[in-house]
Amino acid sequence: MSEPKDNAVAADRAMVPYWEAARAGRLLLRRCSTCSELHYYPRPLCPFCLSSEGEWVEASGEGVIYSWSVERRANPPYAIAFVTLREGPTLMSNIVDCDLDGLAVGQAVHLQFEEREGQPVPVFRPS
């Protein structure tokens, strides 16, 4: 897949608190003040009702693997996953510091951040 051509992060004013928190090792979700739904990835307009009233909510960092795969042809191979956070939303991530042959759906994982191409990204390792 192709990478973004310019810096999407810098151009998005509403997401500044998200990236600042990420740099400090905290993962922010977005809760809508109108319909109360929690969503991720975060948007200034709620994807359930398009309300622009919302608040940032810090994720606990605890989650379980919803699904996973290991890209075996990559060098080195890596694990991609959907992780369901304790708070509810499911997000795409990588499972790191793990046995690539020992992953399982339902496995408990814990959040950590890694810097990739200057961007702090949320990844998970087995709890």
């Binding site: 897949m1 992060v9 699904s67 990844v123």
Partner: peptide, 26 residues
């Protein structure tokens, strides 16, 4: 134009293969 999902997905190196594979796994 970069889609809004890109910064929340592309860093994790999704490929057509591993994305469809996760459907199979689940």
């Amino acid at each position: 134009v970069i889609p809004p999902d890109a910064p929340f997905e592309l860093p994790f190196k999704p490929t057509v293969l591993n994305l469809y594979a996760m459907c199979a796994r689940r």
